[in-house]
Amino acid sequence: MAMTPERIRKRLVRVFNTILPGKSAEEIPEATMDNTEAWDSLATLSLFTLAEEEFGIKLGLDLIGQTKSFAALEKLVTEKVG
């Protein structure tokens, strides 16, 4: 039943693009707070919220401060979904 990594990636890229538009689907997996304009802590909170809705999971809000890249977010989501 576990979701494939490709499927998670595809859906999370869509979530990311909703909150932080401007990057291509190829660029998004490489996105970090440093290389992404407008990515502040509120944007991270928004990413968490929309990812929670998309995957039907709860992410720990205490992790907002340390989630500074798409890769880190993807790891969190994969742990919860898998």
Partner: peptide, 11 residues
Amino acid sequence: GLGDILSTGTR
């Protein structure tokens, strides 16, 4: 939609 709020609302 939550997306409306988090994307359009943010803008």
